[in-house]
Design a binder for these strands. Structure first.
Lengths: 145, 145
DNA sequence: TTATATGCAAATCTTTTGCAAGGAT
DNA sequence: ATCCTTGCAAAAGATTTGCATATAA
């Protein structure tokens, strides 16, 4: 079967099916949009992006799908009081750097997280499964002022 | 002047005035409620708590005040897609542990954060000012199941 | 005194839900 | 042929806003 599917799209489809979910065209399109609709896009931004390919896709489907992606580890939600929820396609351990002035969001790796887990588990009694690390500050452009 | 103010309340009042804000009874009551209305209370929970002392205090004031506290470093906001914003009176470097099963939130210290700052700043070009670290997993009660 | 903060109620926005129709497996 | 998903539109919530009144400094 030769379609216009990229390797990554097939991979996403397989991952969904493995977990018992259907690989619908909407879900695959949303997955692609998540990666291409800019940095840490909002639900509305992702919706706008996928509508270019599929003008009938509903906002509710985008909401539901992103929540699903968050649960099965295909995306990570980022939520602030004063803005709509954003989603991040990067799911491995990383730091979200957030500029307090211009709102820019940047990812940097955080390989040390693995090493912290045993200590966190020992001290708290929790079993650790994932993490979100936001660091607030001023980006190179804004710190100059 | 002898009132029923605790040392911490006076301290909060001074901190507000230092920053050019008024130390209103509502703000002081909200500050106290933030510490006593349970672990990581929601805005509504804080509102319920302060209403015991001041039944006329408005929800909008609680919202405004908590946002102010977040800005001046008296509290830290914690926001999830599927729940109302919570506030944490602990502002020094710590980890929020979140149980994926029962929703429990617990704090543990994270003294190592200071040591990470130079590396984060070097790699990103940002100037770091604060941080939020959420770790997801299962609490002692829930992991047993 | 006077600029700031409060309370109220309405408005705004985000997110969720119920249900009939559609479609992946 | 099933039963999971979708789209639509309405509902539910959370949060913000405008403005007159009150009040801390």
């Amino acid at each position: 079967m030769v379609l216009d599917m990229t390797e990554s799209t097939e991979c996403t489809a397989d991952l969904l099916r493995e977990r018992g979910f259907r690989a619908t065209p909407q879900r695959l399109a949303i997955c692609e949009a998540l990666k291409k609709a800019g940095s840490h896009p909002t639900v509305a931004e992702i919706h706008e992006y996928v509508k270019k390919k599929d003008p009938t896709i509903s906002l509710a489907t985008v909401y539901n799908t992103l929540e699903l992606f968050n649960q099965i580890g295909l995306a990570r939600e980022i939520c602030f009081r004063d803005q709509p929820t954003r989603y991040d396609p990067t799911v491995d351990s990383h730091i979200n750097l957030l500029c307090l002035n211009c709102g820019a969001v940047e990812d940097i790796s955080f390989d040390d997280f693995e090493q912290l887990i045993p200590d966190i588990e020992n001290r708290s009694g929790f079993v650790v499964s994932s993490q979100r690390f936001d660091v607030y500050g001023y980006c190179p452009k804004c710190k100059a002022k």
